[in-house]
Amino acid sequence: MHEWALAESIVMTVLDAAKKEKLKKITEINIQIGELQQIEQDIFEFAIEEIIKSHKNKLKNVKINIATENSKLKCKICNHEWMFSDIRENLNNDESEAIHFIPEVALVHTRCPKCGSPDFDISSGRGVSISSIKGER
């Protein structure tokens, strides 16, 4: 359940941004989660709701939108492009779980499906980011 650790990072980022922008109340948070993170969304949402409880003043009734950013992997050798979902079924549980914790180990446990190279870009689909927040001054 390292979803909790990531949820905590969301709330902290929002509170930091609110302070910087002098927002009295935050009304909406738009979150983007990379596909490679393989987050369990219900745990992640529950964790955010729980953490928010200790910041009631600024985050009461905040609307939370979570979107998954699809992965885009591109081979640096043959330029082939694919998605993590295309190859996920080839991974065993341990490999899949390792990528869940550290998405970049996809470079360790997978290869370009076309030429077999380990040298590919994770062009999108990793990390946890906030695309926007809305609030009241």
Partner: peptide, 10 residues
Amino acid sequence: MDARVSVIAK
């Protein structure tokens, strides 16, 4: 904005 960076100091 990468949210993960905010929690490192904590």
